[in-house]
Amino acid sequence: MIELVNETAYAAIDVAIREITSAAHRPEGSYVSLPLLYPSGSTVVVRVAGGPSTFFVTDFGMGFTEAEMMGCDRIYLRQARAISERTGVGFDEHAFFAIRVGGDQLAGAIVTIANCSAEAVTISAFKAAEKAAVDASEFLIAKLETVFGANRVARKEKLVGASNHEWEFAAAVKDGRRTSLFEFATKHPNSVANVAMKMGDIALLDHAPRRIVMVHSKMEMGTYLGVLSHTASIVEETISGDQMRKLAEAA
C-alpha cells in the first residue's frame, strides 16, 4: 500500500482535483467541463445559464454533435429519447436539459445532464459497432448469392440445435440434402460469443450441417479465432468464389 507522506502530497492532490472540473464563463452561460469522457476522449461539457435563484442546465447538443461526428447520430436520437424517459431529464431532439434548477440542485443537475449525454453517446457508439455486423451479414449473403445463385441461398435460416433451442443463421446454402450454414462474426466479444454459441449447439447434432463463419480479417480476430474454430470453419471476406464452392461442397 502506498501511503501519503506529507502536506506536499495533499497539496498536489488538491491541485489535481481543481483541474478536473473547470468553467468558462460566457455571455450565454457558463460552460462547465467535467471529469467524464465521451468515447472519443473529449471531456463532457454542460452549459449553465440563468440564476441567481433558478438555472437552466443543458449539454447544448454536444452529445448529439459527438455522435454526428462518429456517424451514429440517428442511433443517438433513439438512445437519448430512452435515457430522457428513464431519467426524467428533458431532451429536445438535440440537447439534454433541465429547467428551473434551484441553487441547491445545481451540482446534481450538472452531473445528471453530463452523465445522460455521455451515456447516450457511449451506447450509440456501441450500437453502431453492432450494426456494422448486420451490414457485414448483408455482404456475406450477397457474396453467397453471386457464388451459388440466389435460389440456393436461404436468408435467416432457422435451425433447432442439440439443446432444442431454435437458432437463426445469416444464410444457408442448400444443395439437395446437403446444407451449409453461414454467419458473419466481428471482433466484438458479443458477436463472437453469439456466433460460437449457435455454431456449438448445431455442431452437437447428428448429421450436423457444415458451419462456416466469415470474418473481416483473421489477423484482426486474434485469439477469438480459436473460440470460433472449435465448431466452425472460418474464412475471410476476401475468399474467392471457387474456395467458397469447395468449402460448401465438402459438407
Binding site: 467541463s33 473529449s42 471531456t43 450494426k131 451490414d135 457485414a136 455482404f139
Partner: peptide, 28 residues
C-alpha cells in the same frame, strides 16, 4: 471522414483538428 460503402469496417473520421475547443481531450 471516410465511410466504406458496406460500412465494414464501419468507417468514420480519420483525422480531426479542434480549434479553441470548449471541451478538452484526454489521451488516457
Amino acid at each position: 471522414e471516410y465511410y466504406p460503402p458496406r460500412r465494414q469496417p464501419r468507417g468514420g473520421p480519420f483525422a480531426r483538428i479542434e480549434w479553441r475547443p470548449l471541451r478538452g481531450h484526454n489521451n488516457k
